[in-house]
Every structure is written in structure tokens, then in C-alpha cells.
Design a protein around this nucleic acid. Sequence first.
DNA 1: ACTAACCCGAACATCGCTGTACGAGTTAGG
DNA 2: CCTAACTCGTACAGCGATGTTCGGGTTAGT
Lengths: 193, 193
Amino acid sequence: MSTAEPPMRADAQRNRAAILEAATSALTADPRASMVDIARQAGVGRVTLYGHFPSRTELVDAVFAHNMRRAEAHLGAVDLTGDPRTALERLVSSSWREIADSHGVLEAAEQELGGDRVRAHHDDTLHRVRALLARGQAAGAFRDDVSADWLTSCAFAVLHLAAAEIRAGRLTEPQAPGVVSTTVLAIVDRPGR
Amino acid sequence: MSTAEPPMRADAQRNRAAILEAATSALTADPRASMVDIARQAGVGRVTLYGHFPSRTELVDAVFAHNMRRAEAHLGAVDLTGDPRTALERLVSSSWREIADSHGVLEAAEQELGGDRVRAHHDDTLHRVRALLARGQAAGAFRDDVSADWLTSCAFAVLHLAAAEIRAGRLTEPQAPGVVSTTVLAIVDRPGR
DNA sequence: ACTAACCCGAACATCGCTGTACGAGTTAGG
DNA sequence: CCTAACTCGTACAGCGATGTTCGGGTTAGT
């Protein structure tokens, strides 16, 4: 069943990587960046671009998947055991920046692939956070009068909000981590006492 | 300096209103709705549409402004005096639905007009909420280790998040108000005790 | 009843983007 | 060194959107 593909030539691999990289940066700057923009920024002909990715949709999909794998690898290294509160704090402080930067690619993916496909790629990362929050609920550290799913969504929303505020100049880079983790903890913390 | 415009004819006024209405609903359904879509939905010729609004940008601007005035009128009727917590609860419960519905128009406006212009239209509503939160901070009811601006942004973000979750089918209409107000209060509440 | 304001469909001119086709040049790798 | 893989620019076809123009038909208001 293996599709028996002959290995890509070295320059082709390099170009493919350059495209992925350039697309990431172009879409980050402007989620509606066109194929022309991306090709130019990758230092590659438009035709070559289409040679690697037959349509814009497939390009965006590949870029998004690529970035999610990278984030996944980074996030996977964070220790989530022990006290749920401090674990959550570790997670937030070591990932907020990366998630914030991914905003442009995420938006492009939502436009081009639709929310469901995005959700599918997001799944692993989402589950990791959700599991931590659910564990905190079970341990009595986090509030359980709302669902773990809702808490998860809120946490991500706060991260993205912080990113937007920084882009708009209403929040500075240095103060962001503090504000974000304060807010996230406020959301998940059990109220009584 | 008055531009001395002769009053519009009655049918022109009706059409203008119909366009504003149709555009609101079209953009709510799909923020990228085209002029053709909007004209059709308004039961009006494309040319007539351009007669009233010379460009898509001006249309979106007018629609957005129109909706903000409507929301403003509604929001302005809410009593924000007394205990800040219950005042905030009143505000949230009487406005969350309206704000949630405005999502499509808001997104269209952001695409077409840019964040700054959007901000300008938003200003009054934003300030009303911000004033309440600042008052709560001064009274010692709300946390003041983060800025009132940040709290304001968070509150709106939670409302929009809830709307998105409903659209995605991960939250039901009936449970939304409770979850939203719980979360907003959790964010603004003073932590100590 | 008359006139100016308004509406309408159809056609036209651009623009930007996507995707494909061709032909010739360059490079990796055995 | 030789071939297959890869790249490049250019050109073309198609789509969908935005605005504009024109000429004839309706309708409001005095």
C-alpha cells in the first residue's frame, strides 16, 4: 500500500522547507496573503510553488499542520504533573508567546479550511490542556460548575486576546505574561475560599 | 457650512433602510457577503445599492455605525448604579445576546475598515463598560492588579467566545448566559477573600 | 399633471487572484 | 558526464468582485 515515492532531490526539499517557512511568515503578517506574495517571499517562482502545493488550500493546510507539529513538540516538553495550578502556570508561561504568534496562520486556516478541519489539527494540543484542567477539577483545585471544555476555550481565548492587544499597542510585551497568567488562573480557580 | 441636502424621497428612504437591514443580516450570515448578495437580499438592484452607498467600504461603515447606534440605545437603558457586581451582571445578561449576534458585522468591519475605525465606532459602548469596571475597582469590589482596559477587553472576549461556541454547537443557548456571567465575574472579582 | 427624483437591468471596463501550459534553462546525483 | 528531476518566466484562461455608464421605465410630491 505504500505509495512508493522516490525521495525528493535535495534542492526540492530545501525549496519546500523555504516555502513552508515563508508562508508562515507571510500569513502571520497578513492572513490573506496571496500565492504570489508567498512565492516571492520564499524566493521561488510561482510555478514552483504550485509544483509543491497544487492549491492554496493544500498549502495552508500543510503550513498549519507544520506549525502545529512544531508547537506540539514544544508543548509536549512541559511538565504537567504536580499541583494543577503551578502546572497550568508553567504551561501558560512557556507557550503563550508561541500561541500568540500563530494567530495569522490560524486565521488563514479558518478562512481556507473551515473550523472543523482546524479543530482536527488542533485536537492534540487542545486535549492536552483540557486534560490538565479536568484533572484540576477532579482534584478540587479548579471550579467545576462549568465544563472543562469551556475553561479550555477561555484559556485559549485569553492568550489570543493578549496577542491582539499587543499587536494593537494596548499591551506591552513585558507585562503580557503576568496579565495572562493572572487572568487564566482567575477563570479556572475554584471560587469558594 | 450645512450641506443643505434636500430631503430624500419616501421610497428612497425605505430602500435605504431595507439595504441597511439586509446588509446586517447578510453580513451576519457571512462577513464576506458581496454587494450582489446584499442587493439581492434587500430586493433592490445593484445599481440602486451603489446609488446609496458608493463603495463597499462605505456600506460596511454605515451598517456598522447603524448597528452600534441601536446597541448603544439598548445598552444605555441598563441601570449601572449600585453594587458593581450586580450592575455588571445586569449589563451582561441584558446585552450578551445582542453583542453575540453582532459578530458577523464586526468581522466584516474589521476586514474592510481596519481595527482603528472599528475602535472609533465602538468607543462609546467600550467606555460605558470600562467606567463600570473602573468604578468597581475604586470601590474595592474588582481586582485592580490589572488595568480596567484589560478587564474590559476580557469581558468582550468572553461574550464573543460564547457566541462562537454556540455557533459551533459546543454550547447551548440556555446555558450560555449562566456560563458567561460566571466567567466574567470570575475574571473581574477581587481575589483576596 | 407634470417634473424631478428615483429605480432598474444590462452591458462594460478593471482588477486581483487562482490554476494550467509551454519551452527552455539549471542542477542534483548515479 | 549524462539524464532525470527540478526550476524559471511568460503567457493564457477563467472566475468573481467592484464600480461605472446608459437609456428607458416608475413613482413621489407639488
